[in-house]
Simulated assay, not measured.
Amino acid sequence: MKGHSYSYVVLQYRHDVWIGEAMNVGVLLCCPGERFLKLKCRRGRGRIAQAYPGIDAAALTGTIRALEHRFGRIEAGWDMLSSVAKAGDIARGVLRADASSLQWAMDGGGIASSAAETMDMLYDRFVGLYDDEAPRDARTDEQVFDTVKVKLEAAQLYKRFERHVVRSEFGDVPFDHAFKNGVWHCVQGVSFDSANHERMLEKAQKLAGKMHSIASFRGSMRPYFVTGKPQRSDLLPQYGKMQALLRSSPLDPLVVDEHDSSIVVDHIAAVAH
């Protein structure tokens, strides 16, 4: 097999260093032939938070980000490294073995046709193997939107809806369900029926980011977000926070739970006549 030699080392988190129990949280891969040096990690939520409820997730996340940044700087200055550099040697030069909660273990290596693909494979093997088996929302955004669509159809309003794409200097933001009467009224379902806190946050941040990218369209459009709550009761507090995050985004979006979607219909009806 053609390719380049690589080496890796696993980053482990030890909640109580005296017990010695460890959880794999990341993989550092070094491939001199591709000038590749990357640390891929999970954050201080998800499985770690479930296993150790008392964990300081913010502190762990900050430490991991600092490590990722450090290895990124080392990769950027690759000429300073040896052509036979090993992941374990580099890793322990940055984070030395001591009594801290983060430690390196299980050095290994091989031949890779693609360092990036090998990184993903090693991460899945050593870190993501027992993650929740639900990478997608249990319900889609469209399934959540259906709760308001039925009411719009009953009010003889949905037949006036169409697809609208907001084009800005930062990119296009499509809305599949939009109605124009002076301004564009864009209704979108947002499913938060997710596997964990982190996925919910990523989704809300991504949507809020889109609102920031089209903030200059204030006055010419109004977004409406109909949100679907998670089935897991322990995720409901996070759900409320994600609704608040969306409400704080530009363009003054109206954010309601799917069970209150009649509020959106009433707003649309008020401007439709």
Rank of each mutant, 00 (worst) to 15 (best):
5 S>R: 15
13 Y>G: 03
15 H>N: 15
15 H>Q: 12
17 V>D: 06
21 E>G: 07
23 M>Q: 14
24 N>S: 13
26 G>L: 06
27 V>R: 05
29 L>G: 00
30 C>T: 15
32 P>G: 01
33 G>I: 03
36 F>K: 05
39 L>K: 01
39 L>Y: 05
40 K>S: 14
40 K>I: 11
42 R>P: 01
44 G>M: 04
46 G>N: 13
50 Q>A: 15
59 A>S: 10
59 A>T: 07
60 L>E: 06
63 T>A: 10
63 T>N: 05
64 I>H: 04
70 R>D: 09
72 G>K: 11
73 R>E: 15
75 E>Y: 04
76 A>E: 15
76 A>C: 10
80 M>P: 01
85 A>V: 14
85 A>M: 11
90 I>D: 07
91 A>W: 03
92 R>D: 04
93 G>Q: 01
94 V>N: 00
97 A>C: 08
98 D>Q: 00
105 A>V: 08
105 A>P: 03
107 D>M: 01
108 G>E: 03
113 S>W: 05
115 A>F: 04
122 L>Q: 04
123 Y>G: 08
125 R>L: 15
127 V>S: 05
131 D>C: 04
136 R>T: 13
144 V>L: 01
147 T>R: 07
150 V>S: 14
150 V>H: 15
153 E>Q: 08
155 A>P: 00
162 E>V: 15
162 E>D: 10
163 R>P: 07
164 H>N: 08
167 R>D: 09
168 S>L: 06
169 E>N: 00
170 F>K: 06
174 P>A: 12
175 F>E: 00
175 F>S: 03
179 F>Q: 07
181 N>T: 13
190 V>S: 03
190 V>T: 03
193 D>I: 10
200 M>P: 01
200 M>R: 01
202 E>R: 13
207 L>K: 14
210 K>W: 09
211 M>N: 11
212 H>Y: 15
218 R>T: 12
218 R>P: 07
218 R>E: 14
219 G>S: 01
220 S>L: 02
221 M>L: 04
224 Y>E: 00
225 F>E: 15
226 V>Y: 06
235 L>Y: 10
240 G>A: 12
240 G>T: 09
245 L>W: 11
247 R>A: 08
248 S>V: 06
260 D>T: 00
262 S>Q: 13
263 I>A: 13
265 V>H: 04
266 D>T: 09
269 A>L: 00
